[in-house]
Nucleic acid binder design. Structure first.
Length: 303
DNA sequence: AAGTAGGTCAACCGCACTTCA
DNA sequence: ATGAAGTGCGGTTGACCTACT
C-alpha cells in the first residue's frame, strides 16, 4: 500500500532543467527560503514537482556545493566510511563538506568500485576477494615480469622491470596473506615506485555490518584521523607492515587459517598456487629465502 | 569521417521514514 | 493510535560525451 507518487500531476515538466528554471528556483529560495517543497514550485512559478525542485537545489544549485575532482583524501574517506556504513550515501556526504550524496554515489559506482576490484578487494564487503580473478591477472603480470631478458620491453636502464616484478610479488604476497588472515589492506599501485595509499583499521573492517552500524559517530573521527598517505621512501618498510599490522594479525588465529585454507581448497587453485609456487621457487636465491623467512615468521605452524 | 562502445552524471522513481492533525 | 502528507534516501535510467575502431 504505497503512497501515490508526488509528481503524478499531468503536465508537470520532467527532464533537464533550463537556466531560466534554475534562476527562478534560486531567486525564490534566496528571497523566501525553502518552505515546503510541495508548494514551492507553485509559488516560484515553476512547472515542476517539489521533489524535482528539491533534487535540483540539493544536488546542483545550493551555493555551498564543491565542484571538481575528488581529492585523494576525499577518496580515502569515502572508502573508509563505506567500509563502515555501506551505501549510506547521505551519511557519507555529511563527512565531505560540499559534496552531495548523489555525487558521491556516482563517483563510487564509476570510479572507486572499480579501483577496489582492481586491488582485489570486494567493494561490498571491503574484504579481499576470494574468486581469484584478480590473482589471475596478477600471475599474468608476474609472467610478464619473469620474461626479464635484456630484450624484454620491461627491462630498462631505470630498473622498471625490477619494479614491476617487485610490485607484482608484493601484491601477490599481500593477497595471499589477506586470504589466510584477513589482515590490513595495502595498495601497491604506482608504477613510478611503491607507495601505500590505503590503510584500514583492520579491527573495524572485519566487523559485521550490524555491529558497525551500532557504533557511534566517534568512529568516523577515528577513521578520519587514521587516513594517511605514506611517502614513497617508506617502501622498504612495506613487508613488515603487511604481516604485522594490528592486533588481529599479531595474534594469528589458526582456526581462521584452517577455515580459509579449507575454503580455498574447494576453489580452483591452480593459477593462484602456481603463481605462488613460482614466486617462491623461481626467485633468485637470496630473495627467495627472504620470502620463506617472512612466511615462517608469520605462519610458523602452517608452513 | 562515421559508427560504436563505454563512461559519466543529472535526474527520476519508488519506497521508507518522520511529522502532524 | 492512525492515516495522510511531506521529506529523504538509494537504486536506476538515459542523455550526453569521449575514446576507440
Amino acid at each position: 500500500m504505497g503512497r501515490p507518487p508526488c509528481c503524478n500531476e499531468s503536465g508537470v515538466k520532467k527532464g533537464p532543467w533550463t537556466p531560466e528554471e534554475d534562476e527562478k528556483l534560486m531567486d525564490y529560495i534566496s528571497k523566501h527560503g525553502r518552505g515546503t517543497w510541495r508548494t514551492l514550485p507553485k509559488h516560484a512559478g515553476l512547472n515542476r514537482c517539489g521533489k524535482s525542485c528539491r533534487l535540483r537545489w540539493e544536488n546542483y544549485l545550493r551555493p555551498d556545493i564543491k565542484r571538481g575532482k575528488f581529492t585523494e583524501e576525499e577518496e580515502q574517506l569515502i572508502i573508509n566510511l563505506h567500509s563502515v556504513i555501506g551505501n549510506k550515501w547521505a551519511k557519507i556526504a555529511t563527512h565531505l563538506p560540499g559534496r552531495t550524496d548523489n555525487e558521491i554515489k556516482n563517483y563510487w559506482n564509476t570510479n572507486l568500485r572499480k579501483k577496489l576490484l582492481q586491488m582485489g578487494i570486494d567493494p561490498e564487503t571491503h574484504k579481499p576477494r576470494t574468486d581469484f580473478n584478480h590473482l589471475l591477472n596478477l600471475s599474468q603480470l608476474l609472467g610478464l615480469s619473469n620474461l626479464g631478458t635484456s630484450t624484454s620491453p620491461w627491462t630498462n636502464p631505470l630498473g622498471l622491470q625490477a619494479d614491476v616484478t617487485q610490485i607484482a610479488k608484493l601484491q601477490l604476497l599481500q593477497n595471499m596473506l589477506q586470504l589466510f588472515n584477513g589482515t590490513s589492506l595495502v595498495n601497491i599501485g604506482n608504477n613510478s615506485g611503491l607507495f601505500l595509499s590505503q590503510t584500514y583499521s583492520d579491527s573495524s573492517v572485519f566487523k559485521s555490518r550490524t555491529e558497525k552500524e551500532n557504533e557511534t559517530n566517534q568512529e568516523f573521527l577515528g577513521y578520519n584521523q587514521s587516513i594517511s598517505t605514506f611517502p614513497e621512501n617508506q617502501a622498504e618498510n612495506l613487508l613488515p607492515a603487511l604481516v604485522a599490522s594490528g592486533p588481529r594479525s599479531s595474534t594469528f588465529n589458526q582456526m581462521d587459517f584452517n577455515y580459509n585454507a579449507a575454503r580455498m581448497s574447494t576453489q580452483s587453485p591452480s593459477t593462484t598456487f602456481e603463481a605462488w609456487e613460482k614466486f617462491l621457487i623461481d626467485d633468485d636465491e637470496s630473495s627467495g629465502s627472504y620470502w620463506k623467512e617472512i612466511l615462517d615468521l608469520t605462519y610458523p605452524l602452517s608452513w
